[in-house]
Amino acid sequence: MFAYIVKRLLAGMVVVVLISIAVFALFWYGPESPARPVCESKTGGKCTPERLANFEKSLGYDNPIYEEYGKYAKGVFVGRELTIGTQRIDCDAPCLGYSFKNNTLVWDDLVKRMPATVSVAGGGALLYLLLGIPIGVAAARRRGSLTDKVLVSSFLVVSSVPYYLFALLAWIYCTLVFEIPVLGSSGYTPFTDNPWKWATGLLLPWLCLGLFGCTQYTRYTRGAMVEALSEDYIRTAKAKGLPASTVVYRHGLRSALVPVVTVFGIDLGVLLAGTIFTEKIFEIQGIGLWGLNAVVAKDLQVVAATALFGAVVMVISNLVVDLIYSVLDPRVRLS
């Protein structure tokens, strides 16, 4: 088991490193020098070739990519000193670089923004389960009936609408048109400041994410339940005269849940890596919005950091999923 985890973590690290190299390469071999956005920003749009050269030099972007990446990677572990133009910055480990746009150390921002994204992602993902599983079970129990079809297709309709539109309209109607109490005042407040405000402010974003994302859980649970309910042991249980609910929940759902939980692990990972749409629409200053703005501003260090963060989260969640899977389903042996 331990050896397996170590092996997986090593493989995961390779993936993470590759992704961060890929981001570097995208900027390095892109249509313009990665120093150009920095130069344009710092010179108020008067980036002459000489100034550009200066910035390339001070940022180290005139070095070969492997050399610069090496420094970057080293900085993550031991810290480094950064220079941007005439500015000198001490960047302690873990050093993810310096955002020229925000004038902050990337790691500090990452830590500052993480709670918002974790809050949004955690709540939204929880709603996937809380909404998706009961509805899926309900549909499976009435398989083929009108209820089944209405349930399945109505959620399908909701998730066919572009998500941004769904969230935007939900926000407009809850906040402005009907001014629904609680739901109407969305926004992020740190949990430590005020837990009640934290929960109420995030309720609408959670609901939007949950309603939209639960469709696949509904369908998945339904499929797995249909499958499970037709297994021999369920029929045996039924024949033994066990109550229908016991059969469904204790026997059917249990086996159906195994794959659902694993999908959930992956989804949670993806959400944690950055809920871009939700953060943008609900003006939540988390990792997703940060990454989006950094891409627009071509802030290489921040883009690299968000990609790195996303990859790390994905690797860990994949690993956790596999571990849980092995616990839930004894047939799977980790090797």
């Binding site: 998500y163 941004y164 994410l209 993806v270 959400l271 749409f277």
Partner: peptide, 11 residues
């Protein structure tokens, strides 16, 4: 399938 527009499946 469809959930593609959510962050979930965007990735």
């Amino acid at each position: 399938q469809t959930h593609c527009l959510d962050e979930v499946s965007m990735s």
